[in-house]
């Protein structure tokens, strides 16, 4: 299987009246066809901006400053808005966090789904309607034929997210970007939506980028993971590598701050002290250094390069440098661009 998406040195900034907000500062990653890539990070880490950059929906005053986004052999940053718009909803789809507000309240589900289908295919109205009903049935909406004429407010949150997924998948996209698709839903509904996405992924063979701040969600469904912080990628690896062999202090901190079943009952949750960096004036060095327990002089001065730990696992932390003092739990790696 080939690479479906390759993002090189992506820089995205928002030029506000206060100055340049550097939301993404040099992301590099790629994903294989059929992958489910998870991007984790707290709010403001740049994960959503990365996704929106891929799909070309960075609104004014935001701008992709540099970098390439190679999707299916094409560089998306070279395409015009119109060419991108032909891809969107067709080859790349995206679903968003809040299903309550993501559907237009004044049009019926039928209207909105058929609009997308007819935009990207040459189906007739009747065919498009049949296709929409079929999609709704696939995502598990009962009595789809009757309910398709309803307005969004007549659906529950979980049902609306199913409608969103049905719409997004209606043109068989090669890549589906899901930005916190289950965060706004009840816990039980969350599980249902994730299960649905997993089963659909197997069926339609779509690659998925799943953006979330919830490590639990990531562990459940993803094949590989990117950890972002302060607009930069901190660590990349497979699920097992990120969960059991985390080698970046931020990833380790994330694990410690989340409750888990395997944790011993008397073990305390450890919050990460401090707050995320101000992206108007990002720190010169590693963005996590002000909050890092193991920060070294170099961390404050220079962002760390990616150190390869193995073929799939790499981490941007100076502690992996050969000269760095040894810290328990963090294995040394090799600098990638040394």
């Amino acid at each position: 299987m080939g690479k479906i998406l390759e993002v090189n040195n992506l820089h995205t900034s928002f030029f506000t009246h206060l100055g340049e907000v550097q939301a993404v500062r040099g992301s590099d990653f790629s994903m294989e066809e059929g992958d489910i890539l998870g991007i984790v990070g707290e709010s403001g880490s740049g994960k959503s901006v990365t996704a929106l950059s891929v799909i070309g929906l960075i609104d004014e005053p935001g701008k992709i400053k540099e970098g390439d986004i190679i999707f299916d052999g094409k560089d998306l940053t070279e395409l015009s808005y119109k060419e991108l718009s032909d891809l969107r909803g067709n080859d790349i789809s995206m679903i968003f966090q809040d299903p309550m507000t993501s559907l237009n309240p004044v049009f019926t589900i039928k209207n909105q789904m058929m609009e997308v289908i007819r935009r990207h295919t040459d189906m007739s109205k009747a065919e498009a309607k049949q296709h929409a009903i079929k999609m709704l049935e696939i995502v598990g909406i009962p009595e789809a034929e009757a309910r398709i004429s309803s307005y969004p407010h007549e659906f529950s949150g979980g049902m609306r997210q199913r409608v969103m997924i049905a719409t997004a998948l209606s043109c068989n996209p090669k890549l589906l970007i899901a930005d916190e698709p289950s965060t706004a839903l009840d816990v039980t509904i969350q599980a249902q939506i994730l299960d649905l996405m997993l089963s659909l992924q197997k069926e339609i063979k779509t690659s998925i980028i799943l953006i979330t701040h919830d490590l639990g969600v990531i562990a459940e469904v993803c094949t590989s993971i990117i950890v972002m912080y302060g607009g930069m990628i901190m660590e990349k690896g497979t699920v097992d590598e990120i969960f059991y062999e985390a080698s970046h202090p931020y990833t380790i901190g994330l694990h410690k701050s989340v409750p888990s079943m395997s944790r011993k009952s008397n073990e305390r949750l450890v919050p990460i002290a401090g707050s995320p960096p101000d992206l108007l004036k990002p720190p010169a060095g590693c963005p996590f250094s002000p909050r890092c327990d193991h920060a070294m002089q170099i961390c404050l001065e220079l962002p760390a390069p990616m150190f390869d730990i193995n073929k799939t696992h790499c981490s941007a932390c100076w502690l992996l440098h050969e000269d760095a003092p040894k810290v328990e739990g963090i294995e040394k790696g090799e600098a990638k661009n040394g």
Partner: peptide, 21 residues
């Protein structure tokens, strides 16, 4: 990479990290 001063690989004390006013 090799030209990085090895002295920089020392842990900094908490005070130096305090960026937040």
């Amino acid at each position: 990479m090799s030209d990085i001063n090895k002295n920089k690989f020392v842990f900094v004390s908490d005070r130096e990290k305090e960026h937040d006013e």
